[in-house]
């Protein structure tokens, strides 16, 4: 039942921040139902989308993510009544900010996936993985990490190498 895994030149790293009540349970359902989806997504669970600070998204990109997915309960289904409503506004604003500083919004996706929507989880993750694979690696933040103010630039090759390899 395992389809032969296709070989790709580039496997994107995607970080997904999900709420424990809906999307995490949805992803779990996809797993227990033996649905296949790309292993490119690293799932990090939170109590609620309301706990997902925009800084986490930024940090994920800084640490080398090629894409970020944020997913939680559908409006009205929040375990804490309104966490996802607050999150919705915050993310609406944050994506505009990221876009304005020059991040391609195709790398940042949001979805509502309920505990019953294992199929939707597979669809969202597969779609995002494929589109990011097509876009190639996210280079902006990675390049920025290795940059120095001229005064502190190191000239030796060994150090440069040691330095570049730091995650």
């Amino acid at each position: 039942m395992h389809a032969t895994k296709q070989q790709h030149d580039f496997e994107p790293k995607i970080v997904s921040f999900v709420c424990t009540w809906c999307t995490y349970a949805g992803a779990d359902l996809a797993g227990t139902s033996r649905m296949q989806y790309p292993a490119n997504v690293r799932v990090i669970k939170f109590p609620c989308t309301g706990r997902i600070d925009p800084v986490f998204i930024l940090k994920a990109f800084q640490k080398g993510a090629d894409g970020v997915l944020v997913s939680g309960c559908h409006p009205g289904d929040c375990h804490y009544m309104a966490g996802n409503f607050h999150a919705r506004r915050r993310f609406a604003a944050f994506r505009k900010l990221l876009e304005f500083v020059g991040v391609d919004l195709a790398r940042l996706e949001f979805s509502w996936v309920s505990a019953a929507e294992g199929g939707k989880w597979v669809e969202v993750v597969t779609g995002l993985t494929e589109s990011i694979r097509a876009m190639g690696p996210m280079t902006e933040f990675k390049e920025l990490k290795t940059e120095e103010h001229w005064s502190g630039q190191l000239e030796t090759a060994e150090l440069k190498e040691a330095y570049d390899s730091i995650p």
């Binding site: 120095e148 103010h149 005064s151 502190g152 190191l154 150090l159 040691a162 330095y163 730091i166």
Partner: peptide, 11 residues
């Protein structure tokens, strides 16, 4: 020039 804004001193 002598005292950089930020410099690496070890890895």
């Amino acid at each position: 020039t002598f005292f950089p804004l930020c410099e690496t001193i070890l890895t």
